[in-house]
Design a protein around this nucleic acid. Structure first.
Length: 556
RNA sequence: UGGGGAGUCGCCAAGCGGUAAGGCAGCGGCCUUUGGAGCCGCCACUCGGAGGUUCGAAUCCUCCCUCCCCAGCCA
């Protein structure tokens, strides 16, 4: 028996975790995923979820789901429900550890008084404008607030009265007393608490003051015993403040913050503000519109949890700014669906083919595998008859050299059925092709010729009289350019063709009754997923992703 | 201009002083009852640039260049 070499950590964060574990600095790793419930989770969050929960799983630790609900003016319960659903759907479990920053409001308040008593925080009665003016600029130091030197007693009294609701919104703030001349603007006496007379989803009207992220986050981490607090690059500048609070408050543990680069995907936007705009301004049909990069959108589109996890794994974790090629997530879903999706035949843009030498009124049922490469998925029966429908683009009257599909006089294979040869093209007065005539070779029943003939193409098809009608929604990238954020208004870059609806696609009857979220490969076309808009008598499909199309490439 | 980060193949990403992993994309070929899948092969004499240290540098030092983030009582 051979002993596997220990797998080396996949990224710099796991490397740090392993060192901490090995050195005994960490007994058991505890991470957290800390969403603010002010929007739906997107693929960028999936990266963070996979990192935080992934590390907890790999090192036998724990990952808390902690809602960063410190700003009741922006947060809604609808979002907290969607977040829980999305994390669970991705395949991760927080166990008992569904937590909220608001659970710690009392402790956080007490620590506020502690800082005041230590002379490390003060109540400032300046207006927001005045504070901005005193903050200085990137190159010039700020100036001390006139209230900076209030006595501990006065600060305590003011802070208690803030807490008691005696002041209107914006009248006072609690600030850390650090250094108004710090080159790091986050250290110029950052605001710790602000007044908001707004009821909170979880604490109701108990608090007229709410802690800022910079204050609540490190302390919440410490309360939960988080060992590695993982966040994105823009918080790098906040780390000195994070550490300052951990040092200067009597917290029960010593978490450390590490930053990694957020995920960006080409041809889409990732900021919650922009995604919110797409939803509220009606550019898409909701947060779960299949064109959205949200977890809910990807789910409805037909993405699988494992394809998203694999994608995040492939993307890696580093500190370098990045824009991931949209092709990579498409590769990940194709890879998964190729393995698991049963195959079925459907025609999106039908062209009638009448097989002249086939007996009228006959119907044959062919057994065909649900997955050519995986017999365990079984077989199904598909009906064949005199009039069939093929994909319009599979016929060309005057085919170019490398076009292998049907053409006048040419023989092709109909998947699992017969070889047919096109004998005649019927056109309307305008010259449009309306119907094809063909003959079939009875000896090729099942799709193989006893004489070893090999047609260059195999087409998908459905029997006209047995096909069921359904709606198919074809999606394209939401934006026209690779980086829509780059130039001016991202809305100007919206792709007007991002959704194309096929009202009367024709599918083989075996799909009848398929339930929402069922996924299929429509042979030669792509992967499709039953949409929740489906009704018992009308199925609606979303095209998750096309198949790779070598012909499209050579045709160009 | 102050502070904090980052620059390795078209896009990601390993590399931690011993002579450039891997994935995606791309390009050839084999195979194929999906122009799919699968299989095989090719794809960085070079690591933002210039100096230096060293037997040896993507890795260490110096200077320079480029890009990203920070002036919310948002997170």
């Amino acid at each position: 028996m051979t002993i596997e070499a220990p797998e080396k950590p996949r990224d710099f964060i796991r490397e740090i975790v392993e060192e901490d574990l090995a050195a005994g600095r960490t007994q058991r790793v505890i991470t957290r995923f800390p969403p603010e419930p002010n929007g739906y989770l997107h693929i960028g969050h999936a990266k963070s979820i996979c990192l935080n929960f992934g590390i907890a799983n790999e090192y036998n630790g724990q990952c808390n789901l902690r809602f960063d609900d410190t700003n009741p003016t922006k947060e809604e319960v609808e979002f907290t429900e969607s977040i829980k659903r999305d994390v669970a759907w991705l395949g991760f479990s927080w166990g008992e550890n569904l937590l909220h920053a608001s659970d710690y409001f009392a402790q956080l308040y007490t620590w506020g008084e502690e800082l005041i008593n230590a002379g490390k925080a003060y109540v400032d009665s300046s207006s927001a404008d005045e504070m901005r003016a005193m903050r200085g600029t990137l190159t010039e130091p700020g100036t001390d607030s006139p209230h900076r030197s209030r006595s501990i007693e006065e600060n305590l009294d003011l802070f208690r009265r803030m807490r008691a609701g005696e002041f209107p919104d914006g009248a006072q703030v609690l600030r850390a007393k650090i250094d108004m001349a710090s080159p790091n603007i986050n250290m110029r006496d950052p605001v710790l608490y602000r007044i908001r007379h707004k009821s909170h989803d979880r604490t109701g009207d108990a608090w007229p003051i709410y802690p800022m992220y910079d204050y609540a986050h490190p302390l919440s981490d410490a309360i939960e015993g988080i060992t590695h607090s993982l966040c994105t690059l823009e918080y790098e500048d906040h780390r000195p403040l994070y550490d300052w609070l951990i040092e200067d408050v009597s917290v029960p543990s010593r978490p450390r913050q590490y930053e990694f680069a957020r995920l960006n995907l080409s041809y889409t936007v990732m900021s919650k503000r922009k995604l919110l705009g797409l939803v509220t301004e009606g550019h898409v049909h909701g947060w779960d519109d299949p064109r959205m990069p949200t977890i809910a959108g990807l789910r409805r589109r037909g993405y699988t949890p494992s394809s998203i996890r694999n994608f995040c794994e492939r993307v890696g974790v580093a500190k370098r700014e990045n824009v991931i090629d949209a092709g990579l997530i498409e590769f990940s879903i194709r890879e998964d669906l190729n393995r698991i999706a049963p195959r079925v035949m459907g025609v999106l843009d039908p062209l009638r083919v009448v097989i002249d030498n086939y007996p009228a009124g006959d119907t044959e049922w062919f057994d065909t595998p649900n997955h050519v490469d995986d017999p365990s998925l079984g077989t199904r029966r598909v009906p064949f008859a005199k009039t069939i429908l093929i994909e319009r683009e599979d016929f060309l009257e005057d085919p170019p050299k490398k076009f292998f599909r049907l053409a006048p006089g040419r023989e092709v294979r109909l998947r699992s059925a017969y070889f047919i040869t096109c004998t005649n093209v019927v056109k309307d007065d305008a010259g449009n092709i309306v119907e094809l005539h063909a003959t079939y070779d009875p000896a090729t029943r099942g799709g193989d010729s006893p004489d070893g003939r090999k047609p260059k193409a195999t087409l998908h098809w459905v029997a006209a009289d047995h096909a069921i009608d359904c709606e198919v929604r074809l999606y394209d990238r939401l934006f026209k350019s690779e980086n829509p954020e780059e130039s001016g208004n991202f809305l100007d870059d919206l792709n007007p063709q991002s959704l194309q609806v096929v009202q009367a696609a024709k599918l083989e009857p075996s799909v009848r009754g398929a339930q929402p979220q069922s996924r299929f490969q429509f042979e030669r076309l792509g992967y499709f997923c039953v949409d929740s808009d489906s009704t018992p008598d009308r199925l609606v499909f979303n095209r998750t992703v096309t198949l790779k199309d070598a012909w499209a490439k050579t045709a160009k």
